[in-house]
């Protein structure tokens, strides 16, 4: 009984540690006063201000574009690569998986800088370089989600389909695709998550005019905190909550797949 009580208290304390900062942001986003500590009444003005702020909106749009483009392209390249890798002999697989590990194991700051050094030689830093960088660090997550599914899939069923006269594409669509689809989907979701959350790599590859939410926030945070940012946090928090609740009927399954591949 005592043990149960202690663990309940611990759960509560950790919950508070994780959520108090977010709660403070949410409360302050409705506060009609620029002060961080005085309650000046209830207001929505930071929300309207947030939507009228050009910097915030531009960063928001850029973030969405980068995230979805990079997730789609990296899912495509990554899934194709995984199918190719699965057909390779041991040695080829080792080389490809070794290269796949480089962006995963490297520190973000090193990955970002190394790409910046390359990009400035050949082009101006901007939207395209950020997009390339995001695709690069997202592909490994797709491959590592799809490859195990391909290895579990029974190759004989695909061959049987071919023997029975199916074209390779048709056999793939009817036999292999249903088996790897969950892996492709979770790879796509992880690419989205990683791209949304990235700061360091974007920071080094973005150039002057382009900002994602993370880099925009970084610049703003160094200047001081605008109350519009509280509103932005609140909107994003509930957007994420809603998306996860809709997208995940089995929430913990997805989150545990993140590291458990």
């Amino acid at each position: 009984m005592l043990k149960k009580c202690a663990s309940r208290i611990y759960l509560f304390l950790m919950f508070a540690f994780l959520y108090l900062p977010i709660l403070v942001l949410i409360v302050l986003s409705f506060n009609d006063s620029r002060s961080k500590v005085k309650w000046g009444g209830f207001t929505f003005k930071w929300y309207t201000g947030c939507f009228q702020d050009e910097k915030i909106m531009a960063a928001f749009v850029t973030t969405l574009q980068i995230t979805f483009l990079s997730a789609i392209i990296s899912t495509l390249i990554g899934t194709l690569a995984a199918i190719g890798i699965a057909a390779m002999k041991r040695k080829g697989q080792a080389i490809f998986l070794g290269a796949t590990n480089i962006p995963l194991l490297n520190a973000d700051i090193v990955t970002g800088i190394s790409m910046m050094l390359l990009f400035v030689k050949f082009m101006d830093l901007g939207f395209v370089t950020v997009l390339i960088a995001h695709i690069t660090f997202s592909i490994p997550y797709v491959i590592l989600n799809v490859l195990p599914r391909l290895k579990q899939a029974n190759i004989s069923t695909y061959e049987a389909a071919l023997d029975l006269g199916a074209s390779p594409l048709y056999a793939f669509y009817k036999v292999t695709w249903p088996e790897i689809r969950p892996g492709v989907l979770s790879g796509f979701m992880m690419a989205v998550t990683m791209s949304l959350d990235d700061f360091s790599i974007t920071y080094f590859t973005k150039g002057a005019g382009v900002n994602t939410l993370s880099t925009m926030l970084y610049t703003e945070l160094r200047k001081g905190i605008k109350p519009e940012l509280y509103a932005l946090s609140t909107i994003l928090f509930f957007a994420v909550l809603l998306l996860l609740l809709i997208g995940n009927v089995r929430p913990a399954k997805r989150s545990s797949e993140r590291f458990d591949k």
Partner: peptide, 21 residues
């Protein structure tokens, strides 16, 4: 478990913003 993982999906910079505050 989902409840304890949720803050992870909040933007990295916004979590720092909260602590600065």
């Amino acid at each position: 478990v989902f409840i304890f993982m949720l803050p992870m999906w909040m933007n990295f910079m916004l979590r720092i913003l909260a602590w600065k505050l």
